[in-house]
Amino acid sequence: MERIESELTKRIHAVEKKTSKIDELKGLGTKLQELKSHIESEFHNTKKQLEKSQDDIAGLKREVQKLVKHREIVGGNLTEIEQRLDTTERQLREKKAKLENLETETETAFSDTQKLLNLYKSELSNLNTTAQELEVKVEARLDSSKAELEAKLKKIQTNSEAFSTKLKEQKDEVEKFKGEADKKFMNVNEQLQTQKTTLTKQKADTDTLRDDVAGITNRLTSAEKKADEQKTLEPEVDKLKAAVNTKVAFSATIIESKDVFTGPKTATTSSTLIFNKVFTNIGNAYNSKTGVFTAPVKGVYHFSFMTFGYNSHTSGGILVKNGHYQVSTWEFTGPDISDTTSNTVILELNVTDCINIILWEGGKIHTGVFSGFLVYPTL
């Protein structure tokens, strides 16, 4: 009985030692996790390797948790064995068998844990190696950056020295320019004093001239008003001059021809008489080819016409303005051999108004005269 208790105590101590090792492994796992987080923050390019190590650590934690559970189970079984040692040796033997099985399982678990620990150490070694490589790279990059910064600093120093030299030269030039400017300023000051005296005299003369200019300005204002009035009236005066200078007068007859009793006529308007022999056409307002007079200016016009025909047909004519009858002459057939008719009219015409003579329907003439002139223009 004492031997069994002693053996059980030894086994419990062994389990506790293993549990302590497991706790140490857990502490080591925590430290490795912190190291992993630190390495992740500083070296982003080792992220994939750390993620793999994290998975291994998680597996190791699970194994450790299993061992802890085994320890709890074993502790419970030992408590139960101690309670039953007093009641039956058979139960102790059964517990012994169970403890032996538990020892086997614990050794197996410890072996697996040892393997995981070795694997984790290997990963840690790889991480250390990677960290060292990164440290070497960082140091190399820092050395390169330091060399570049030193080169740039040297270049800046060189440029600064050149700039200082140039600045000194410019400062000397400024001092020289300042001296010359002081001399010129003194000369200008003397000239200003002279000009001030002159300006005082000129101001007095200017006041006198200002009074004279004010009087001249008043006279010019009055003259400008008169000039503006004249400019306003100039267009009207020009119109009046143009109208007064406009001269219009014409007189034409019908040349005797084979068209006896009908007079010359156009192809489209057979009734229009064309007085084709022109005596006078001042202003060229009468068209001897169409027989139409066109008013060149607005005004009052005097027109007269005469026709000569034989008694075999009605004779006479109608004076037309823009196609509308105005005045006419008419002579019916009778015992007389020939008849002469005439008429006169004064009309007010606008520019482009047309005047012409037409025959009565069925009428015939032998010859005739058509005359007109501008009495006076109107606005």
Rank of each mutant, 00 (worst) to 15 (best):
S328H: 06
E175Y: 10
Y310R: 14
D228V: 08
L142H: 15
V278Y: 14
F305P: 00
W360L: 07
E82P: 01
L99I: 07
E331W: 00
T217Q: 09
K10R: 05
K201R: 15
S41L: 08
S342H: 09
E150M: 05
K289G: 15
V174P: 02
K184A: 03
F261R: 09
Q132Y: 11
K225A: 15
A109T: 02
V237K: 02
L92K: 12
D207S: 09
K178N: 10
S37K: 12
A162R: 08
H38V: 12
G179I: 02
S328P: 03
P377H: 01
Q170M: 10
N287V: 12
T280Q: 11
K258E: 11
L92V: 10
Q114T: 15
L359Q: 11
K298D: 01
S111F: 02
K26C: 06
F43D: 10
H13E: 08
T129H: 03
E133H: 11
G263Q: 06
E24W: 08
E139M: 03
L99V: 06
I274Q: 03
F305N: 00
F261H: 13
K121W: 06
S304Y: 03
K69Q: 11
K258Q: 10
M306E: 15
G291I: 08
G368W: 01
A267H: 13
K36P: 01
T253P: 02
G29M: 13
L60Q: 03
G179E: 13
G363D: 01
V320A: 05
F279D: 11
V136E: 05
S270F: 08
T280L: 09
L35W: 05
E24N: 04
L192D: 10
L134F: 14
I255A: 15
L153A: 14
S164T: 10
K18N: 09
S328K: 10
G362S: 11
W330F: 15
A131C: 07
K98Y: 02
K47N: 07
A227V: 08
L134R: 13
Y120E: 13
T367L: 06
F305H: 00
T198Q: 13
S328I: 01
L347M: 15
D228N: 07
T314F: 06
K166C: 04
Q83D: 04
I73N: 05
N45T: 09
E135F: 04
V188N: 06
G75I: 13
Q195P: 00
T200V: 11
T130S: 14
V375S: 09
A204Q: 10
D211K: 12
E348V: 09
L67G: 03
I355G: 03
V297H: 01
S328F: 08
G179H: 06
V375H: 12
T108L: 08
T113D: 01
S111I: 01
E135L: 10
G215K: 13
L35F: 07
T352H: 11
I255H: 14
F373Y: 15
L199R: 03
G291P: 04
N45H: 12
K66Q: 07
D86V: 07
K183A: 10
P235F: 08
G316W: 00
A140C: 00
T106H: 12
R141I: 00
E100L: 13
E72I: 11
K277T: 02
D86K: 14
F332K: 01
T269G: 03
E331A: 09
Q326R: 08
S122P: 02
G263V: 07
V351Q: 12
K277A: 04
T232R: 02
H313T: 07
T344V: 09
